[in-house]
Write a protein that binds this DNA or RNA. Sequence first.
DNA 1: GGCTATACCTAGTGTTACTAGGTGTCAAGC
DNA 2: GCTTGACACCTAGTAACACTAGGTATAGCC
Lengths: 103, 103
Amino acid sequence: MKPEELKGHLDGLILAVVSQESLHGYAVIEALKQRSGGALALPEGTVYPALHRLEADGLLRSEWTQAGRKRRVYSITKRGEKELGVSRERWRVFSATIEAVLT
Amino acid sequence: MKPEELKGHLDGLILAVVSQESLHGYAVIEALKQRSGGALALPEGTVYPALHRLEADGLLRSEWTQAGRKRRVYSITKRGEKELGVSRERWRVFSATIEAVLT
DNA sequence: GGCTATACCTAGTGTTACTAGGTGTCAAGC
DNA sequence: GCTTGACACCTAGTAACACTAGGTATAGCC
């Protein structure tokens, strides 16, 4: 998968996995890999800044935990849930559009 | 539709419309708008540079015509046809991946 | 002790759709 | 004739963002 084609879609994906279960950053990467069947093997340099951006936008909230290893666990906020809905709808429109032209 | 989410997908869309019929730049914009039901209303500053890039990459070829107005008509090349196939396959993989995670 | 997987971070890069301008032609309406 | 709007082309600069390439540190296993 080439890097650019993910642009604009990453935030929704992260919101989707975190909405199911609060996760720390590294676990988000694992979850994306697993749920995509290995297709989404994102580097940390992609995911961590995205998490910070989502938190700055108030769509995620984070908390440091220390059960053994120090981890920053992210949960989805109300606004994040709402934005996830918007992302899903936007994806429907977008994919229908591409499908109509490309195929 | 937000601008970034198109990134990495535009080239395939242009190849798709030009593969059906040779078109000049302005007509490519119209064709994309029509085939997408109005969803893809791309500015000229997006499409013209993309056409130049595709020609530089050998995926399109252009010819100036003068039947009334001066127009630059683009046709798809053999390499362009092949790349269009790759784009379609890449889209299938990509959309399946997003679908798996997002929904 | 050394190694691997886990876990976090960020400064800088590259690509690319878009903005905001520009030039010129043609047809229709006044 | 003149103006307006659609047609038709172009490009320099901007913004956004996934990614590269580094860095630090801990836990568990051999």
